[in-house]
Design a protein around this nucleic acid. Structure first.
Length: 567
RNA sequence: CGGGGUGUGGCGCAGUCCGGUAGCGCAGGGCGUUUGGGACGCCAAGGUCGCAGGUUCGAAUCCUGCCACCCCGACCA
């Protein structure tokens, strides 16, 4: 491709509404243009990247045995009412009416439609298993679209749905998709991690998220560098400390702590570290009585974990000031188990503490030297906190570290949630009607482009992994329009590279070299060749990889082979 | 949804407090000089100042309403 026949629209300055690097760089490089909040046009350069991502996904899905189809973006309400999601989905579902005032929605996902296809087509166990996928535009009316294409409202997703005669076969396919996804992200050239995930609103049981690792990621991931354990921070189990609780060595003392409300203030006031304190959080219990939760001062309560406890009412709600005062005789900031007869639940880390500091259930007073059994009854012990760096890995193979990631893929074992609602039945070998097992597997195609940039950029611009770069090689001739030697050598190299099937971009604009260099670096072309009279008179041209600090010379005669070997 | 902020030429901004008829940089056009890291000079062009109403002799500027966009927020003792 010659720049003169293509369309580049680079910007020196990023529009002021862009916040994160990937968004800024995508705008500056002219990959995307915003149409309205969370809705973007993919410009020619961006589309090249998007297509490369799509093609890798398509090839690997095909290799994994999935079959591509294309379903409608606009879907009738009836199907959604049948699955009961028309009422459940909420405002994220973009609802529209046709000219007859009939209800439709713009599909945020396609369980309903694919189920409809399958129940019409599949009658026998002989037709199973089946895995249908598509690469298609979705619309989710996000509360707050942000970060450009990272959390857009309209986006492209690869979604796959598998159907099985039994659970065992679903598990087989789930593993197959897990491996397929790993191949996809590996081929895309991204650093990623598959993490065990909560099943969230879609429902079902087994679930893994695939995260591209980047400091700017929205999700915190706990992983074990010594093993392949990885989980969402919300989900990672905080295991019980191995060290037993030390014996009490301090006397229980009630100390005045005027105006101390928070753990930070308490630590500053008593000049002790947060690990020696216990914070008390009160939530509504199932029996309408408040439940007292105890967490080590430096730890964070995990509401997802707490919400799963039978004693705690769903959804988890912090108790009102009045009910706290009625139950504890003190206000938040001075609470503890002293004299409280209701349910007390402590995090496992708290159970290993001795001589700690805790609220005295009297305003502006805390206890120091507090100990279980001696001073308070031993509470129920369980895991109700977020893991932190240095916690033991739940798989027992080392300690946890925490990193940030961008969720780009998610696989689920849906089991029979939709197949029951939408009556996906088939006849088994004995002629009996059975409900299908179902799995679903999504990849955020457009988000991958943003995530790849988030992970691969420098102060000059994007550093695309080769597999998804808009072009493999940029040729920057100096004096293309002046020097016949430069033009001849450039055109020759360009033709030779094209003949080799290499995606090459020839910058034949009559620009100053600096401007061309800057653009080629901004748009992230991984390899650059410079041809000028200076080098040409020694039969040399200059090569520089996008990640190299210095260029080096290549003999013109070996240029093709050298470049090929570097790709 | 709640809180905060911003709308001025394609992009980045000044001007708004204190009304007097719109300016800067970049990009784009023409001519010339330049050409190995975002060139320089000259000339020309480009704006319903988000929209609608109001106040005023006069509104980008003051008032009212609306719209759009951006940022923050659902880990609290």
């Amino acid at each position: 491709m010659r720049v003169s026949q293509f369309f580049l629209s680079t910007l020196k300055e990023a529009p002021s509404d862009a916040e994160v690097v990937s968004h800024k760089l995508m705008l500056r490089a002219g990959l995307i243009k915003r149409l309205t909040s969370g809705v973007y046009t993919w410009m020619p350069l961006g589309l090249r990247v998007l297509r490369k991502v799509e093609n890798i996904i398509r090839e690997e899905m095909n290799r994994g045995g999935a079959i591509e189809l294309l379903m409608p973006a606009v879907q009738p309400a009836e199907l959604w009412k049948e699955s009961t999601r028309w009422d459940q989905y909420g405002p994220e579902l973009l609802r529209i009416k046709d000219r007859h005032q009939r209800d439709f929605c713009f599909g945020p996902t396609h369980e309903e439609v694919v189920s409809d296809v399958v129940r019409r087509e599949i009658k026998s166990y002989r037709q199973l298993p089946l895995n249908f996928y598509q690469i298609q535009t979705k619309f989710r009316d996000e509360i707050r679209p942000r970060f450009g294409v990272m959390r857009g409202r309209e986006f492209i997703m690869k979604d796959a749905y598998s159907f099985h005669a039994d659970y065992e076969d679903l598990q087989r396919e789930y593993l197959n998709m897990h491996e397929t996804y790993s191949r996809i992200f590996t081929r895309l050239g991204l650093k990623f991690r598959a993490v065990a995930a909560d099943t969230g609103s879609i429902g079902g049981t087994g679930s893994h998220e695939f995260h591209v690792l980047a400091d700017s990621g929205e999700d915190a991931i706990a992983y074990c560098p010594q093993s392949d354990y990885a989980a969402n921070v919300e989900l990672a189990e905080a295991v019980a400390p191995k060290t037993p609780r030390p014996a009490a060595s301090q006397p229980l003392q009630k100390v005045p702590t005027p105006d101390v409300k928070t753990i930070a203030e308490l630590c500053a006031f008593l000049k002790i570290p947060a690990e020696r304190t216990v914070k008390a959080v009160v939530v509504d219990g199932t029996n309408d009585q408040p439940v007292l939760l105890l967490i080590r001062g430096d730890h964070e309560l995990n509401l997802v974990k707490a919400g799963k406890l039978a004693q705690i009412r769903q959804p988890v709600a912090f108790s009102s000031a009045e009910s706290i005062r009625a139950a504890f005789g003190a206000d938040p900031g001075s609470l503890g188990p002293a004299g409280y007869s209701g349910t007390v639940i402590a995090d496992r880390a708290v159970m290993a503490m001795a001589d700690f500091v805790i609220g005295a259930n009297a305003n502006d007073h805390h206890y120091t030297g507090a100990n279980f059994i001696r001073d308070f009854p031993e509470p129920v012990a369980t895991d109700i906190r977020n893991v932190v760096t240095g916690d033991a890995s739940p798989d027992g193979k080392g300690t946890l570290a925490i990193c940030r990631g961008i969720e780009v893929g998610h696989i689920f074992q849906l089991r029979t949630k939709y197949s029951t609602a939408l009556k996906l039945a088939f006849l088994d070998e004995s002629g009996k009607s059975q409900i299908m097992e179902m799995g679903c597997y999504g990849i955020g195609v457009t988000r991958i482009v943003a995530a790849a940039i988030e992970q691969n950029h420098d102060e000059r611009g994007i550093m695309f992994p080769r597999a998804i770069a808009p072009f493999d090689v940029a040729i920057v001739p100096i004096g293309y329009h002046k020097s016949t030697q430069v033009k001849a050598a450039t055109d020759q190299l360009y033709d030779d590279l094209i003949a080799e099937g290499i995606d090459v971009l020839l910058d034949n604009r009559d620009e100053r070299p600096g401007a061309m260099f800057a653009d080629m670096e901004l748009i992230g072309v991984p390899h650059r060749v410079v041809i000028g009279e200076r080098g040409l008179k020694d039969g040399q041209l200059e090569y520089k990889g996008r990640r190299d600090t210095q260029p080096h010379n290549l003999p013109l005669t070996e240029a093709i082979n050298s470049i090929k070997s570097m790709l």
